[in-house]
C-alpha cells in the first residue's frame, strides 16, 4: 500500500454532472494520480467503501433511504468530507420535489406518466425519504464546493489544496447562491 492520500467519490441523488466535471480535469488527472489513490468511486470497480479514506467528494442530495444510510457510513470512514456541487450543497434540483408528498410523486411517476406496467415499485428502487436534503443536514461536512457543476478548474484546485494539506479558499472561484 502506497502512502499516497486515499481519495473516494460518492454519487448520491444527482445527475453525475459533477463527476463529469471531475473527469474534465483531463490530463491533470495524471498529476493528481501522483498524489492520491482513488479507492472508491462510481468510476472504479470496488464495491465496498474502504475502511478509512482521507478525502471523499460527495455528489448529490440525500433523497432515499439508501442515500441516507450510505452517507452516514461514508462519513464514519472519511476524514475530510467534501460536498461537491449544488445538489450536495443545497439539494438543488432533487429538492424541487420537496413541496410535494412522496405518495404524490410515486403516483405521478409510476401511474400518470407510465404507459406500461403502471405500478409503484416496492423492490429494487430504494424508498424516497420525505425530503431531499443537502448532505450537511444529515452529516457534518468539512468543505463546500458549490456550482452546478463546479468547473473542472475549481475541482482541481480543491483537490490540489486538500492533497497538499490546505483548506481550500474558494473566494472568487465558484459561486454560492443556487
Amino acid at each position: 500500500m502506497s502512502n499516497k492520500t486515499k481519495l473516494a467519490t460518492v454519487w448520491l441523488d444527482g445527475c453525475s454532472g459533477c463527476h463529469m466535471s471531475f473527469l474534465d480535469i483531463d490530463e491533470r488527472l495524471v498529476d493528481l494520480a501522483q498524489l492520491a489513490d482513488l479507492l472508491y468511486s462510481p468510476l472504479v470497480d470496488h464495491k465496498t467503501f474502504p475502511d478509512m479514506v482521507d478525502v471523499t467528494l460527495v455528489e448529490g442530495a440525500v433523497s432515499s433511504e439508501e442515500d441516507y444510510e450510505k452517507i452516514q457510513k461514508v462519513r464514519a470512514h472519511t476524514k475530510i468530507l467534501v460536498s461537491l456541487g449544488d445538489c450536495a450543497v443545497t439539494a438543488n434540483v432533487p429538492g424541487m420535489r420537496n413541496p410535494f408528498k412522496v405518495a404524490a410523486l410515486y403516483e405521478r411517476a409510476y401511474h400518470e406518466n407510465a404507459q406500461l406496467n403502471q405500478q409503484i415499485p416496492v423492490q429494487v428502487i430504494p424508498p424516497l425519504r420525505e425530503m431531499s436534503v443537502p448532505v450537511h443536514q444529515v452529516v457534518a461536512v468539512d468543505v463546500f464546493v458549490p456550482g452546478c457543476p463546479p468547473s473542472a478548474d475549481t475541482i482541481f484546485f480543491v483537490l490540489t489544496e486538500l492533497l497538499n494539506g490546505r483548506k481550500p479558499d474558494l473566494t472568487g472561484r465558484t459561486r454560492f447562491g443556487a
Binding site: 460536498s83 450543497v89 443545497t90 439539494a91 429538492g95 420537496n98 413541496p99 425530503m131 436534503v133 443537502p134 450537511h136 443536514q137 461536512v141 463546500f144 458549490p146 474558494l170 454560492f176 447562491g177
Partner: peptide
C-alpha cells in the same frame, strides 16, 4: 457563504 446553515422550509 458556502452553504445554508438552517433546514429549507420548502
Amino acid at each position: 457563504m458556502t452553504h445554508v446553515g438552517v433546514p429549507y422550509l420548502n
